[in-house]
């Protein structure tokens, strides 16, 4: 990754984070920790991995603000629309909406749907002999859902190498740590046994994420990326804690985080 591209991506990520941080602050809303967990993943997906008519499915719909911010960064959502986040009569509710933006083909928010939706797009591309790829970002908590594994079986059965599954592995779910609620480890072995090529990576290392792109082109197996992340990454007082899933950010932490995101 050359310096120019590195600077470009770094600025995109900071801009995406600044925007959704403001959105959460104005709305006094929770789920900031979920967006901070996947900010690099979504930004790299949009600006480094996707091309043409590729699709992105945010299965962990509770990080919608991050998705909206990424789409605003790509001028697919206006700043005026962003300003309506959480307000009455908005097109930008807390979870992705129905039929409002072409870049959001399906509403998500109920966990365990996204990978099947992505699998459907992957299968459709295969039938049409299209080289379109579908990137699906799931949480790790939603691996509790049986439907996720139905989709995984289907992706392997039909060798849908055009579906790239990224698991935001922040190890926290709705009411506890993933390994205390419903142990997932050894997750890589589970995924391998389902027929996936498994890539473990630091989900906040955007340079490493960008570098994965070449692997998507000539893979012999469907790919699952375990992106190891920190929930609430950068929110010093609450990162890695369950609280960052639910609590709005206070003014002191907001100022600290914004300062970190300045150029």
């Amino acid at each position: 990754m050359d310096k120019e591209n590195q600077d470009f991506m770094e600025e995109r990520i900071k801009s995406v984070k600044r925007r959704f941080l403001n959105m959460y602050k104005c709305a006094n809303a929770g789920h900031l920790g979920s967006s901070l967990s996947c900010a690099e993943i979504l930004t790299v997906t949009k600006f480094a991995w996707m091309r043409g008519d590729d699709k992105m499915i945010l299965s962990k719909g509770h990080a919608a603000a991050c998705l909206y911010s990424v789409l605003a960064e790509d001028k697919q959502i206006t700043e005026e629309q962003i300003a309506t986040f959480y307000l009455n009569n908005t097109t930008l509710p807390a979870h992705p909406p129905v039929n409002k933006y072409p870049a959001i083909p399906f509403a998500t928010g109920s966990l365990g749907h996204g990978l099947s939706i992505a699998a459907g797009f992957g299968f459709s591309s295969k039938l049409k002999k299209s080289d379109r790829k579908t990137y699906c970002i799931t949480s790790d908590g939603e691996l509790n859902e049986g439907s996720t594994w139905e989709a995984a079986l289907f992706i392997n059965q039909h060798q849908l190498t055009n579906v790239i599954w990224i698991i935001d592995r922040n190890r926290l779910q709705g009411y506890g740590f993933t390994d205390e609620v419903m142990a997932l480890e050894p997750l890589d072995d589970k995924l391998k046994s389902f027929g996936f090529e498994v890539i473990g990576i630091d989900g906040h290392d955007y340079k490493a994420l960008v570098g994965l792109k070449s692997k998507f082109e000539n893979t012999k197996k469907p790919i699952a990326i375990i992106a190891n992340t920190i929930k609430g990454n950068g929110w010093k007082s609450l990162e890695g804690k369950l609280d960052c899933h639910y609590l709005p950010i206070n003014i002191e932490d907001f100022d600290l985080l914004q300062a970190d995101l300045r150029n």
């Binding site: 083909p105 992505a118 699998a119 459907g120 439907s147 139905e150 989709a151 289907f154």
Partner: peptide, 22 residues
């Protein structure tokens, strides 16, 4: 397509196929 015994996945896959005008 025999989708196997996985009806939840089957519906969502069908939805995406319909989105793509199948």
């Amino acid at each position: 397509v025999n989708m196997g015994i996985s009806e939840q996945n089957m519906i969502s896959v069908a939805a995406s196929l319909a989105y793509d005008e199948f």
